[in-house]
Amino acid sequence: MSLDDYFHDETYFGDFTYRNSPQAIKRFPFPFPEDDYMYSVNMEPHVPGRKGSVFEHAFDVDEHYVAQMRDRARVLAEDPLRCQSLPHMTLAGWDLLELIMESFARDYPQWFELHKDGNRWHWINRPLGIDDKFTFLDESTLPYGPMEYITRQAQGDFTLQDQRNDNLWIEAGMVTTQADWSVDFDIGMNFHEWHAPVPLAREMGVFDRALKFLLQLQHGAPVRRFNWTMTVDPLLDTSPENYHKWGPSKTTMTRETIGRRQHLRVELQTLFRLPRSNAIAFPIRCYMISFQDLVTQPKWARRLHRVIRDLPEELATYKGFLRNRPLMVEYLSQFDDGKPTSPGWWPEDE
C-alpha cells in the first residue's frame, strides 16, 4: 500500500471531509469503562497495549497523520501564538524531540528513520516528505525551535511542564487541537492555576492527588489517562481564540444531522518524564468519532447513552454541550435496549 492510500486526504475545517475507516472505528479509544462517569485521577502505566490498538506504541501514528499535520500548519499560519516556549524550556524541547524521533523510528520504520553519528542526526519523515540533517542540542541547525520542529510532525497537542517548588509549571506548548483552553493565556501557570476553571474536581481532591502523583513520575515509566468532551463537526481547533467563529455551529444541529455532525472527542493524555531537563512532557492526543459511526458498536452505543443522560449538569455545562444534551440523549436512546454492558471499553469483549 502506498503512502497516499493509507493516509487520508481530508479536512478538519470548512468542508469537514474527515472520516474514520472501519478499522479506525474498531480501534477508537472509547473512554468509558462503566455506564457512568465522574472525574477521577484514573492514571495507569502507559505500557504497550493490544496490537492494533491506539496503545500499541508510545505514540500512535494513524491514517489521519498527514491531514492533521496540514491542519496544524494552517492554524499556526493564522495564529503563531499557539506555539510558545519560555526561554528556559529549550532543553525540554530537545528531550521531546529525541523521545518522538526515537519512538517513531522504532515503531514505524516503514515511515520514519533516525540515524545518529554522535550529535549529528539525520531524520527522515516519509509521509511528510522531510529529510533533515541537524546537530542535536544546536538550535541553529533546525528551521524551528526543537519543540516546534518535532510537534509539527506529531499528532496531538503537547505541553512541557517544568518542575520546581513542588509544583509543575506549564512553560511550553504546541496547542492547535485543544478542547477550549488557551496556551497563550495559561503559559507560566502552575498546576492548580491552569486547572482553576474546571468545576467539582478540586473539591474532590483530584488535583492535589494528581499533582502528588506526577511529581514522582519516573523517567522510563510513562502514564496515561483519558479525557473527553463533545464537538459539533470534526473541528480539531476548538480554541477559545476562535470560539466566536465556531460557537454558532452548536445551534444548527438537528435530528437529521446529529448522527453525522456530533462527534465524541476523546483525549488520550500521556505523561513522560524527560531525562535531561527533568521536565514532564504531556502529549494530548485527540480522537474524534461521529455518533453514527460510534453506534455501530452496540456496547458503546448503550453506554454512551447512559453516560450522557446521567452526567451532572455542571459537567455538561463545562464540557459545553448542555444545550444539545436532549438531542443527543434522544438520538442515542434508539440504540440502547437496556441490556447490561460488560466492564471495560473494548467493543469486542461483550
Binding site: S182, F185, D186, I187, G188, M189, E193, A196, P197, P240
Partner: peptide, 12 residues
C-alpha cells in the same frame, strides 16, 4: 472568567 494569569496580570 474566574481565571487569572500572573504573567499577563489579567483575567480572561
Amino acid at each position: 472568567r474566574d481565571h487569572y494569569s500572573r504573567r499577563l496580570a489579567a483575567f480572561q
